[in-house]
Design a protein around this nucleic acid. Sequence first.
DNA 1: GCGACGGCCTAGAACGTTCTAGAGTCGTTG
DNA 2: CAACGACTCTAGAACGTTCTAGGCCGTCGC
Lengths: 343, 343
Amino acid sequence: MRAGERRPTLADVAAEAGVSVALVSIVMRDAPGASATTRERVLEVARRLDYQPDSRARLLRSGESRLLGVVFAVRHPFHDDMLIGLYDAADRLGYELALSAVTPRRDERTAIAGLLQDRCAALVLLGPQLPIAELAALAGRLPVVSMMRGVRHKAVDVVRTDDPRGLHLAVDHLVGLGHTRIAHVDGGRMVASADRRQGYREAMRRHGLDAYTRVVLGGPGEEDGARAARELLDDPPTAVTTFNDLSATGLLDGLRRGGLDVPGDISVVGYDDSSFSRLAHIDLTTVAQDIDTMATLGVARAVERIAGAHVVHRETVIPPRLVIRGTTGPAPLSVGARGPIGE
Amino acid sequence: MRAGERRPTLADVAAEAGVSVALVSIVMRDAPGASATTRERVLEVARRLDYQPDSRARLLRSGESRLLGVVFAVRHPFHDDMLIGLYDAADRLGYELALSAVTPRRDERTAIAGLLQDRCAALVLLGPQLPIAELAALAGRLPVVSMMRGVRHKAVDVVRTDDPRGLHLAVDHLVGLGHTRIAHVDGGRMVASADRRQGYREAMRRHGLDAYTRVVLGGPGEEDGARAARELLDDPPTAVTTFNDLSATGLLDGLRRGGLDVPGDISVVGYDDSSFSRLAHIDLTTVAQDIDTMATLGVARAVERIAGAHVVHRETVIPPRLVIRGTTGPAPLSVGARGPIGE
DNA sequence: GCGACGGCCTAGAACGTTCTAGAGTCGTTG
DNA sequence: CAACGACTCTAGAACGTTCTAGGCCGTCGC
């Protein structure tokens, strides 16, 4: 067999089986309207000719696409994990996924444009960076679900993690271990940064640790964590929460180079439960987002919008979970412990 | 605007602009056969109506799909990197990419089936695991390019890294640093494992270090590296090459826990240049595959097959590159150095 | 002044499916 | 016995595009 040969179509199967094209279509779709015996015979022929339905023609005619467009970022372990869940969820509901990746040289607009041309029934965007106005315009044309990013617009559904709560969990854990001098390395201009920083502040206040609250400027990268480490080394706290795992590893490295033992002298908590945080080498205590639930809900929202005419805007907030590993431990005995900042 | 409204079609644009459907098609495709003024006017209208071509109908009619199906594995940083290159390469040649992911609960067969229904013109498979017979059958229906895995079949093109050479580079580097007692932690049953192990053996022989050749059973995971570390600690060499970065990090961790300093006492070389190997925390010297070149060639092979009727089977082998980071250093002074094994 | 030609444009078929409307057959029923 | 309904099947339109064939108009060459 050579590539370039025409693929068998419904017409080929029909001719071979001696029935009409429409009947073959009925059989292939498992729709009512064919006797058991012809059904059998048609399927036999289809199998023999190795017939594969042409989804393009199918969708073109039937209008409904049962296709969900997913935009994800490459080199983003968290997105990979999310894809796994999305495939499962879509599969359960009888939908297909069309993936479009954002890469360093392929921006979100391009990724979305590709999916629009494929006539997806809805879009699921993982951590979209587009301005709200653009997302809203998009949502005027087809259902749009934003994952991990809050979008205040009635046409855009949102599924995200309760980020403040994530930091409550982290701080509670540390306080439970006896820590009081807990700092936070934030994510700079990143979208989720404000929520996490605020969660940290709230949690500290709730524990009456206002006076120990200390936010260090950081960023999403490893080098941001390393920079924060240098700043912290002047007057190290006994524990640090961070914006994400990557910055946490930079921080870890910086602190250790500065002569501190983790978790002996200082505890560190990451955020995201990235795959590398599980490496024995890193073994980072971190806040995990409930990826499966988020994926299931994301797909569900999209499908609801596709089906129902008008849905009210829904923002679903999923509680995170703390994963305790090796970078957190009891607060060191307060030998030489200093009081609150500014004391 | 509500989702569910019909999208504008060529006919809508044509009616609005007062021209025929065919002419609008000509303008949209940038094909010859329209005057500059009408071209302008049609584009104006298309923009105003926010017309988006329906790629399904387009491809259905034109037969040629200019669509490359790509099967990649999720949670596989190397594949993510490859996607970046593939998008670039496809873009340069005017092709689109249709992605289909292999996840823990979605196997390769399913991923491929999805792409076949989309009538891709060719398939680019990243590290396919399918039996050769199946790949060959597939290649009978459309061009198939296997990336990173050698497939001895005339219908399947292959683009892969020269793995033996990768280990030559690693060993040469270590020998250049004065090492002689160099062990190799292999990848067990993994596909590429044999090539890399053999490359190690060849390189050792070439340097006259036959007597120091030492292969330790390993595997692809971190725990495999850790296990190998325990075995090596009994009689540590001064350098180790490994099957991949993940096993190298496990090894690093095990060696350090065993009291050895890296790279002071012992040097370690990984394989793959995974993103985490760049973390300051790990800073692993490793063998990098030339992803961009591979991606470019993979797409090129697919496109050639699509265009040309008969192409001879081609296996393209790309030389790897050594990335020197912090886990390799000069061989320790031979205080207490032992001779070759079995001396 | 006439045919040929080139530039611009259009009508209608085609791609492979699904869908609608209806045709034929048979058994049941009034 | 005619009418009917259920069941099985078919013809042909439709989806939104591209492609082929051709029409119209002005210009050019003779």
